[in-house]
Simulated assay, not measured.
Amino acid sequence: MKNLIFDNGGTIMLKQTDLTEIKNNVSLPFLYLDIEPTNIPFCVFHPYLETSTVAVALDKSKPMDSHNMKIADILTDKEAYVQWREMTAEKIQNAITLRELYIMVRKSYRLTFLKYAKKYMSSKDFSTYLADAWVSSENPSQDANCSLGMLISWFEQADKKILMETEDYQVYVSLPDELRIYRGVTLGREPNGLSWTSNLETAKWFAHRYDRGNNQGYVEAAIVKKEEVLAYFNTRGEDELVVNVRNLEIEVITKK
């Protein structure tokens, strides 16, 4: 019980991240997930791989260097696959920081990593890596492994001063009691996602960046109360507001 604390919502969090538990219950199980091929040659779906071609040693008994290395397709070369898996498992076991484990995971899998690692993480670490996973993901609101309700609860539990950079936090606390917000919904994207902005031009850009002829995105608008804004990020210059959309009255205001 000494390593347990409660956040403002009464959720149990650890005072200190348990790296061993994350290695054994998240990082290593992720490694042994099946590598799923795509329609694009050598491109794959896997938490640790974007491509099935990896560098492995010609002679496993010697250190891998420029003279003892080959590029292999681990979808067809089973010996190379076993060697890659052993190398990655060793890298996981030798990690001494959470960051080492986190950055091994592809950006599109990092929210899923947090989903399973959260119960072994301190509030500080969880808040830090939630922010990074959110802003580095191309489309976090449509992560198949993390429901909108789960994501909302995560932002509610996060330590806001750690979640946001100092400048972003200052913008967040100075928001008016009510503000008009916009969301650009491009083709194939979630209309009720959590990412919004107070900048209409930014929303328009997101809405129409992938337009194809008559198949076009659109912009949504809503009035939100300050307490329903969960975070503010300007890391990529997007004036992003993370919003609790459960009670939001949304209207479509424009089509190109």
Score class of each variant (00 low, 15 high):
L175C: 07
L175N: 00
L175A: 01
P176D: 09
D177A: 08
D177K: 03
E178Q: 12
E178K: 07
E178L: 09
L179G: 02
L179N: 06
R180S: 15
I181C: 13
I181F: 04
I181D: 04
I181V: 15
I181G: 03
I181R: 08
Y182N: 01
Y182M: 09
Y182V: 01
R183F: 02
G184M: 12
G184C: 08
V185I: 13
V185Q: 13
T186L: 04
T186E: 12
T186W: 11
L187Q: 07
G188R: 09
G188K: 14
R189F: 08
R189T: 13
R189H: 13
R189S: 13
R189A: 12
R189M: 05
E190T: 09
E190L: 10
E190V: 10
N192A: 03
N192H: 10
G193E: 12
L194F: 10
L194V: 07
S195F: 14
W196G: 01
W196S: 05
W196L: 06
T197C: 11
S198F: 15
S198Y: 13
S198C: 10
S198L: 07
S198I: 10
S198P: 00
N199K: 15
N199G: 08
N199C: 11
N199M: 12
L200R: 06
E201I: 04
T202Q: 10
T202N: 12
A203S: 01
A203E: 01
K204I: 02
K204M: 09
K204Q: 05
W205H: 11
W205S: 14
W205Q: 10
W205P: 00
F206M: 07
F206G: 05
F206A: 00
H208S: 07
H208Q: 11
H208P: 01
H208F: 11
H208K: 02
H208I: 05
H208R: 13
R209Q: 14
R209L: 03
Y210W: 02
Y210M: 11
Y210P: 00
Y210G: 03
Y210I: 06
